[in-house]
Design a protein around this nucleic acid. Structure first.
Lengths: 375, 375
DNA sequence: CTGTTAGCGCGTTCAC
DNA sequence: GTGAACGCGCTAACAG
């Protein structure tokens, strides 16, 4: 049985193909009755227009694409949801495309641009090592909405938008918070290569530098390269290695929440309690951090805001209502129960105590009581 | 600047379009030198063939699609990864399509089938309330690979495969395990509507029935309908309500791990410890369960096996090497630290003690020590 | 309001 | 080995 096409419908209705096309695409120039009749036949027949053929002809397709690299990132799903809502409200179609780790997102974008006649593109995740030459090939407006990396400085002659958080700065906030709690030996669990890890590592160093303290280089641990850099397992294994090394530290700052959760498990397994013995902090603000035991101290990315600003800006640029922009949004230091004053040192009244008080207020206890490991 | 097409390439190379086409598609009938020359020009020009046009003509596209409903489900990502690997190995292209909650996955499949000339389809997630009439429209082999629901009984004249876990049975295993630990008042946190919740609820009832015990109806709690049924937040809120009701129970069984984690937080916040005061069990076997504190007792779905069997079967059916099948796989009861013997009652030597011993062995402690809340 | 017709960009016959 | 011509299914312009 051959595929049923628009011709078959036309024949069956006794009309021309263009009339059927008009009925399908809600064109105004059509008799409501014929339209109704045609739609009925279509419904009966189960006819579905071939999208490939449509895309081939259509010039006015109101369609934007979101290219997501790293679908497992829990932050992305809520962003995607928001982007979906906004595009729908503006009556744009949305193509969501998952980009494999080894795929080049620009290549995928190029392909999609031709295939679907895109009007704009949002890149979620991924690295930013694209040459201007390559970016130049993209002929529709695009935005890097990259929780993570601020690439403002990379903007050259190619015009595009970028909405991001200043990772270096936010990371510094976290390190400074821990220093304020009196911690001096803060272990860092981070990526050795990769822009995100690098920026967050820089922030950590900066916090020490600003206090004129020496960075404890021996406490900087790199995650394993042979597996997902930001998995709980990697956090667990890296922390385990650190703990077994016998190194001396009072806090661990992992550059992502998922890493931090793995770290917590490793710490708890040694019989130590969090934060009484060791404070643990993460970065990202995933939902799990609120539910983990203990609740995770973290830097919360403004995901909703990023998503909303991203898609709105893109649609505005497409509509010619705005120019491309570089936007930096602020993240929030969320103090929860996995961090507390350093037992060895002493918290400062200016920073640490206030922070400690904030923790107490938030949790309704008289301080950060220890969490014991149960196994 | 107009889009660059195959014609432009042909002109620039001084050859016919068909020769360019041959070069692109690795056809045998082409002079290696001309091929090389053409590919060079293509590389220089940055020409990208239009997929819509290709799909329109191509008849032999080796392409399968995976339609995922509920991309947030953490179990899916690992399944997708496996499916990707397997399809690649068989030199099939893979289209991954995210289906919105309100979209009908069969409609999406129908559309995609035409657009991409699919050879097969995998449905991940989603419900199974499709009429045979509708399923009949799908002309290529398809498989419901649905962690969750066994729809073998729905197989009628429409031929398709289904690979799943027997949710009712596995759920019964969990309830029986808790009963074996001496628990009699087991609260259930489940969905009121929805096939998955229903089956798992049935299993819970069955376990009581088999022991000739009365089901504590007042302890069956339904999650909120106005938000994601399987979110941590929903688990938290539902458990909170239960705890505040003053109902009497010694264990909580949530029909998903994410719910269970929300439940844990609610329990811990009341100052009770897990499992000393209350045991908590989940279902699914998400990675987080291993890292949570306490480690979560759960039913672990054989996701890798499901994924592998699914895609292999699909490819075999496409290749005519196999017929469609209904396969039921077994899940595994994983006893971890969130459950322990009932304090009020007494565990049975036959079941409960052995289970308790298993827990002890697994965690290396002399039993399931309590986890205290830290906030 | 409606039917006819010309491509959209490419793969695939055919002749050569 | 190669090129010319046709048509995939559809939309858009045009003529009626």
């Amino acid at each position: 049985m051959a595929e049923i096409t628009i011709k078959d419908i036309a024949k069956q209705c006794g009309v021309g193909v263009s009339t059927v096309s008009r009925a399908i695409n809600n064109h105004p120039d059509i008799n409501p009755e014929t339209k109704k009749m045609i739609l009925e036949v279509i419904d009966q027949t189960g006819f579905i227009p071939n999208n490939s053929a449509r895309n081939l002809k259509r010039t006015d397709a109101k369609c934007v694409a979101v290219l997501v690299k790293g679908i497992t990132n829990p932050l992305f799903s809520s962003m995607i949801k928001i982007i979906e809502e906004e595009t729908q409200r503006s009556r744009y179609a949305l193509v969501l495309r998952h980009v494999e780790e080894q795929e080049d997102e620009i290549d995928v974008a190029l392909e999609l641009e031709k295939e679907k006649r895109l009007r704009g593109i949002v890149f979620l995740g991924g690295l930013f090592e694209h040459t201007e030459e390559k970016l130049e090939k993209l002929k529709v407006p695009f935005i890097f909405s990259t929780i993570g990396v601020n690439i403002s400085d990379r903007v050259g002659k190619v015009d595009f938008s970028n909405i991001a958080v200043d990772d270096r700065l936010e990371s510094e906030k976290m390190a400074e918070y821990l220093l304020g709690l009196g911690h001096r030996k803060i272990a860092l669990i981070t990526e050795e290569k990769g822009p995100i890890g690098n920026l967050r590592t820089q922030g950590y160093r900066e916090a020490y530098a600003k206090r004129k303290l020496e960075v404890p280089e021996e406490l900087i641990c790199y995650v394993r390269e042979d597996m997902d850099h930001y998995s709980m397992e990697n956090g667990y294994l890296t922390a385990k290695k650190l703990l077994e090394s016998g190194a001396d530290f009072t806090a661990i700052y992992a550059v992502s929440d998922s890493l931090a959760i793995g770290v917590c498990r490793a710490v708890l397994e040694t019989g130590k309690s969090i934060p009484a013995d060791i404070s643990v902090a993460g970065y990202d603000g995933i939902e799990m951090g609120e539910y983990y035991n203990p609740k995770l101290t973290t830097i919360k990315q403004p995901v909703e805001e990023i998503a909303k600003k991203t898609i709105r800006l893109l649609l505005d640029v497409i509509g010619g209502r705005k120019e491309h922009q570089q936007i930096v949004l602020a993240a929030e230091l969320v103090m929860r129960d996995s961090t507390g004053p350093c037992a060895d040192g002493e918290a400062e009244s200016a920073d640490g105590m206030r922070a400690g008080a904030a923790v107490a207020r938030k949790t309704g206890s008289s301080g950060a009581a220890p969490v014991m490991y149960s196994g």
